[in-house]
């Protein structure tokens, strides 16, 4: 079963946002015990009122669930949504201080195990009896599961179900636009130096899923997670489309100007698209927008 089929099944079940993990006790009651992304059992005594969360993806999920009032502090790297920017910060690029977090007397921490300094929060707060919910996002379905899990952890199941259902609808709507034409092979460049260090993603990365939903076939889907590839490897796989994610998008001509690249099929046929990196590498509710942008790049004739 492919991941996309799995995602479809999740939808088809009607309970698209059904608990991904077992919930102890009848729905709507507290305390409840959840199993998080690290297979840790997390017991939450009552609906959390003072939530601290780091990483843009987690903040976006909580805000999209309408829990802005219950979030007392966030990690310093967050740039979205605008109303989150007013929240106090517990650290960011240089690390997260357990003391700063503790000062907000949180009753729930929502983290992602992708940054050593964030992992440093898990032990102290678990020992102190504050529930720590870890979210992971190896693929698009897990982003939806995260929404569901946060919904259960906060008592916002209804909103989570609505948000998840809405995301799936939007994803299906994008897919409907290109369906009927074959997927196009694509190289997604997540970062690069001027003349090398080309970074891309393979299976086990939500962006690989996002490309599939957008009508793309990742030429490096045989690789795992985030990877660096050589220019000649890109030349050998000769994708139909090149999508380059950049902080400050440069013209597509800058890609065509790389030594040798003018020979690539995507460059010759004018299928090089530079997109603002922005939220595309944030595995949160806005992944739908990323899929839409990818689909526009992959099948422009269907989005004319």
């Amino acid at each position: 079963m492919t991941r996309r089929e799995g995602l479809g099944l999740l939808l088809a079940a009607g309970t698209g946002m059904a608990p991904a993990e077992p919930v102890a006790g009848p729905a709507g009651t507290w305390p409840r015990t959840l199993v998080d992304a690290l297979q840790r059992s997390v017991r939450i005594a009552a609906a959390p009122q003072r939530i601290v969360t780091v990483f843009p993806s987690n903040v976006e999920i909580l805000f999209a669930l309408g829990l802005a009032d219950r979030v007392v502090a966030i990690g310093g790297r967050v740039r979205h949504p605008p109303e989150a920017l007013g929240k106090p910060s517990v650290g960011g690029a240089l690390g997260y201080s357990p003391e700063a977090v503790a000062a907000y007397r949180p009753d729930l921490l929502v983290l992602t195990p992708s940054h050593q300094t964030a992992l440093g929060l898990v032990e102290p707060f678990t020992r102190a009896g504050v529930p720590v919910l870890m979210l992971a996002h190896p693929d698009l379905p897990s982003v939806l599961r995260n929404i569901s899990l946060v919904g259960q952890a906060t008592g916002a199941e209804a909103q989570a179900k609505r948000l998840g259902g809405q995301m799936l609808q939007q994803l299906e709507a994008v897919r409907a636009r290109w369906q009927g034409v074959p997927p196009r092979s694509v190289y997604l460049e997540t970062a690069a130096a001027e003349r090398g260090a080309f970074q891309t993603i393979g299976r086990g990365h939500y962006a690989d899923d996002a490309l599939a939903w957008a009508g793309g076939r990742n030429v490096f889907s045989d690789l795992d997670g985030s990877q660096q590839v050589s220019a000649e490897a890109i030349a050998v796989r000769d994708p139909e489309v090149i999508i380059s994610l950049q902080a400050v998008p440069k013209p597509a001509a800058s890609i065509a100007a790389r030594p040798g690249w003018q020979r690539l099929r995507a460059v010759r046929e004018g299928r090089v698209v530079v997109l603002e990196r922005g939220h595309k590498l944030i595995p949160g509710p806005r992944q739908f927008e990323a899929v839409l942008d990818y689909a526009r790049a992959l099948h422009p004739e269907r989005f004319a």
């Binding site: 997540t190 130096a193 090398g196």
Partner: peptide, 17 residues
């Protein structure tokens, strides 16, 4: 929002084309 992975990789040594 930055090229972090590319920069880290380049700093570990990578011959450009």
């Amino acid at each position: 929002s930055t090229n972090l992975r590319a920069i880290v990789s380049w700093q570990l040594g990578g011959v450009q084309t």
